[in-house]
Design a protein around this nucleic acid. Structure first.
Lengths: 327, 327
DNA sequence: GAGTATACAGAAATCGATTGCTGACACAAG
DNA sequence: CTTGTGTCAGCAATCGATTTCTGTATACTC
């Protein structure tokens, strides 16, 4: 292992000088040249662990997400990564599986690994980032608020998204519009359903909303099962709002199984479908600015890291109902 | 920041003893109890940075993949994660964008961050892990071999997968079967195309293979463009082998646009389609054991980490042609 | 030309945990 | 009673880079 001492020796200067050269502090040009040459010929790579120990924080930020296999979160990760890299930070992706224990483990790693900051999509339930805050680390919540801890937050306008998705179906002539959403301890799932419910009651105050609401698991499987369930009702819905992309896919699968693909049964989806679904009928989608939400969170975090003391803020990003262009 | 010294003081022992207790070395029961109690009341969290500096390696392994948004790689990541966590390691996901410069950056981070080992899907081109090997770090290549460096490797049997996909189409009666694959500096892309070519020439030695081969970018966009291109030929193919999941999605989109969805134009896909495509006709898929490939790579890495000196090996996993059950 | 300000390099302390070595003590064997 | 063997806790060195402090050489002011 070649260390800063080896470089110092070869360049005939002190380790302190090598450090200064490598960190852009002022050093006489001639010495700097010697140092750089020595570092080069020795193929010196500074040890980040030692640097982190001394500086008491690394250049790594942790991004904790509930599911790496969900395109929403990977898109978010891209957004974070792009901004973070730009600023010289690298990103560690941690997969919590929406499990508080795993999440806690990763939070501990973030603390004990001296990570610069944490961007977290809190797991369902009582996420707690107090320990992190107590240590003075920067934390930003994304997509969902944290249950405990007062931190900057970036979320979608979920109620509105649910409302918009419902409205477009209503305007297309559907009248008995159901809603399949995620678990009821996951905030965006609840909010989107609220948006749907508000919209339906606005159109028809006698609509039996609870009857047509289903909680799945925010995954394809759940969407499919709940849709089949809805279709078996005595008075099945004539359309459905899928509260996320995977539910949308599942619901469409179910419709295919039951032979009631759109436009027979209508569907609108909150969140971009991961891949265009190639069959005749266009599907209205409320596109959520997933990449943006990541970029926004990263910017806020970077701001905190550079010492900003501005009061804790919540940013709400609005989705956009798109004419369904594929891909 | 509460350190091991604080704990030591409170428990009236030396820091060394605290360390030994926390690491399960033999210490008299009474002292151990005092230490644990002190650690508990002080809410002591050991600093991994310091430990890593001293031990000269961390409990983190890096997984470098070309595209976090590709389900193949996220599934692989799950496989790696499951095995790694089991063994007490945590995973850092790094996104190389198939870009050698970004890849090199992450490799440097792996070195300078004292990471225990690296599992890498090498970027297109001349990936080089020599530096890592020179430092004695464990490295495993997945999905593609590394251009430089002699390391354990886990790959799919890509040629066979291409061959199988082609065969199933031939047997279904298609005769002019094209192939859309990835960039020609990406090994699996080439191998799958080779499998297709071998199969076609086996069936019909006069088949003008080069005419019906297209290189896209292994993404939806590329698949779509190449498919449209194929469909515009004077003598368009009557079927196509899509060399990966995203190309498959793109190709199907293109078919939808052109109004020649299966079975009019046949298609077989190598690699599971990320989300079931709900329209009447079943699509044959050569399922690749993506999760397995990750688990296998992780096991090999862990083996090396625990000191195994067995000769460098290559593991080849076979895909399986499935009757196309959705989801 | 004397005195002060400035720039810059080196020595050494520091970050927090681990670990080789040493010494203290207990007990068994001779 | 002495020597030998083993257990276990503490001291201090160590990992590699950063940074404070200090000293020296040079430039600048009047």
């Amino acid at each position: 292992m070649v260390t800063i001492y080896d470089v110092a020796e070869r360049a005939a200067v002190s380790p302190a000088t090598v450090s200064r050269v490598l960190n852009g502090k002022s050093v006489k040009a001639e010495l700097a040249a010697r140092v750089l040459e020595a570092a080069d010929t020795l193929a010196y790579v500074p040890n980040r662990t030692a640097r982190t120990l001394r500086r008491r924080h690394s250049e790594v930020i942790a991004l904790i997400i509930p599911d790496v296999e969900n395109p929403l979160f990977t898109a978010l990760a891209r957004g974070v990564e792009d901004v973070a890299r730009e600023a010289g930070y690298s990103l560690v992706l941690c997969n919590s599986d929406d499990d508080l224990a795993k999440e806690r483990e990763y939070l501990d790693i973030a603390i004990s690994g001296d990570m610069a900051g944490v961007i977290i999509v809190p797991a369902a339930g009582e996420s707690n980032v107090d320990l992190l805050l107590a240590k003075g680390r920067a934390v930003v919540a994304v997509d969902r608020p944290v249950a405990h801890g007062n931190v900057d937050t970036v979320v979608f306008d979920n109620a509105r998204a649910g409302h918009d998705a419902t409205t477009v179906l209503w305007e297309a002539g559907y009248r008995r519009i159901a809603c399949i959403t995620g678990p009821n301890d996951v905030r965006p799932a609840v909010d989107r359903a609220m948006g749907w419910q508000a919209a339906m009651l606005g159109f028809d105050s006698t609509f039996p909303a609870v009857t047509y609401l289903r909680h799945g698991d925010f995954r394809t499987r759940g969407g499919q099962e709940m849709m089949l369930d809805l279709l078996q009702m005595d008075e099945p819905p004539d359309a459905v709002v899928a509260a996320n992309n995977l539910i949308g896919v599942g619901a469409i699968n179910a419709m295919a199984q039951a032979g009631t693909l759109p436009p027979t049964t209508g569907i609108a989806v909150v969140g971009g479908l991961p891949y265009a679904l190639p069959f005749g009928h266009p599907i209205p989608v409320v596109h959520l600015p997933t990449r943006h939400i990541g970029m926004s969170a990263a910017r806020i975090l970077l701001d905190r890291l550079s010492g900003s003391q501005s009061p804790v803020s919540t940013v709400v990003l609005r989705g956009e109902l798109t004419p369904p262009t594929p891909a």
